[in-house]
Nucleic acid binder design. Structure first.
Lengths: 109, 109
DNA sequence: CTCGAAGTTCGATGCAATTCGAACTGTACG
DNA sequence: CGTACAGTTCGAATTGCATCGAACTTCGAG
């Protein structure tokens, strides 16, 4: 069921990581787990303002995992996503900090 | 003829910039001008190892310009591309440095 | 065991990106 | 002026991406 490959840090590919982060939904997801640490996927969807179906979110999370940006841990029926900050920093120092700390354009409620 | 919009730094959109950099060809282009400074487009195509038609390169350069990553200057019949380093740094400090300084995977000749 | 919650997978669909060649515009140079 | 060079634009073909609903698995709670 879970044959998603989460690559080792040595196998990270910059274009793939950038592509994973280039989608606004995925960027919001990454920002959320960057700030809140390991988070339950359901909460991420709610709190990160992602209006999409479960299957679509699952798809996006897969992209992030296969690029090496996040890991997923399963506990019971729930899944928890976490940013692979150390691995990312080891391969691309400063990249995630720059992206996470970037000024977020004001979003009107 | 040249109605490509090069956005002001204040209008930069992170997802768009990341998407522009996510393509290996465009990433190689950016890296080249980052190292060599303002460069003639023809040279960039040759030296950056881009095996593509002129029209395709023109397309990629447009993506980079519209995202705000590079500027183009026309001198006579030739065009010269330059990285908008200051503008990029002002909006996303550390981002371009991280990307430019990233270890490039060895490419076998 | 049964039910609901949590996720994944599977088509299908619609949209966007990449690529090319051909035709065009404009510059430089004999 | 005519030729070659530099680059853009325009379809057209191919491919990939985002999205959804439906069906399925798995876990936890009764």
């Amino acid at each position: 069921m879970d044959d998603v490959i989460e690559p080792a840090a040595a196998d990270f590919q910059l274009p793939r990581i950038l592509a994973a982060l280039a989608d606004p939904h995925r960027l919001a997801t990454v920002r959320y787990v960057a700030v809140h640490g390991e988070s339950w996927c359901g909460l991420v969807m709610q709190e990160a303002g992602l209006a999409m179906s479960k299957s679509t979110f699952s798809h996006h999370l897969r992209i992030l995992r296969e690029a090496g940006v996040v890991t997923k841990r399963i506990s019971g029926a729930k899944g928890y996503a976490q940013l692979r900050k150390e691995d990312l920093d080891s391969r691309f120092p400063g990249l995630m900090d720059a992206i996470i700390d970037a000024e977020v354009p004001a979003r009107r409620a």
